[in-house]
């Protein structure tokens, strides 16, 4: 149990370091990436910011190797009995509707859950208000859907 807690604490800490260093806790950068109008007409829409693509690229460089090497038959996690990875492969209406709703909220404020939590204590009132609503949305979804 204590080993599990230490490793997950460290993972959360490293995740936060990555999010802040990458600039993804700054909503202007996220909205700047989603601002595809800026590719076509920067005068009208403002410049497009490619940063998020580089963040994704850097992260995928690592996770593609990680998921190919680590959860192999015969391997065990350091602090757990077995790997517990998502197994679903179906593309259902919940996945699609959920992604549409999430994307819409993401575009409105520029926060997804990771950056919001990583900047909860340093991002001013905006992120606090967003996060309270985020938790309410989660509670609602768990009550209504599951």
């Amino acid at each position: 149990m204590i080993k599990k807690l230490i490793f997950s604490l460290l993972s959360g800490a490293l995740f936060a370091l990555g999010l802040v260093v990458s600039g993804m806790t700054q909503t202007s950068k996220v909205i700047g990436f989603l601002n595809v109008g800026g590719i076509v007409n920067p005068q009208r829409f403002g410049a497009w910011d490619a940063s998020l693509a580089f963040v994704m690229g850097g992260a995928l460089l690592v996770t593609l190797v990680a998921f190919a090497l680590t959860p192999r038959a015969g391997n065990k996690p350091w602090a757990a009995t077995h790997f517990e990875l998502p197994s679903r492969k179906d593309i259902d209406s919940k996945l699609l509707l959920g992604a549409v709703l999430f994307g819409t909220g993401w575009g409105l404020a520029g926060y997804c859950p990771g950056p919001a939590l990583a900047s909860l204590l340093s991002g001013g009132m905006d992120v606090v208000v967003f996060t309270v609503a985020l938790v309410l949305g989660m509670v609602l979804a768990k009550k209504l859907v599951k």
Binding site: L101, F102, A109, C112, T131, A133, L134, V135, G137
Partner: peptide, 10 residues
């Protein structure tokens, strides 16, 4: 935005 992100991600 928060409600949409919370509801949508779950």
């Amino acid at each position: 935005a928060g409600l949409l992100v919370g509801f949508g991600t779950v």
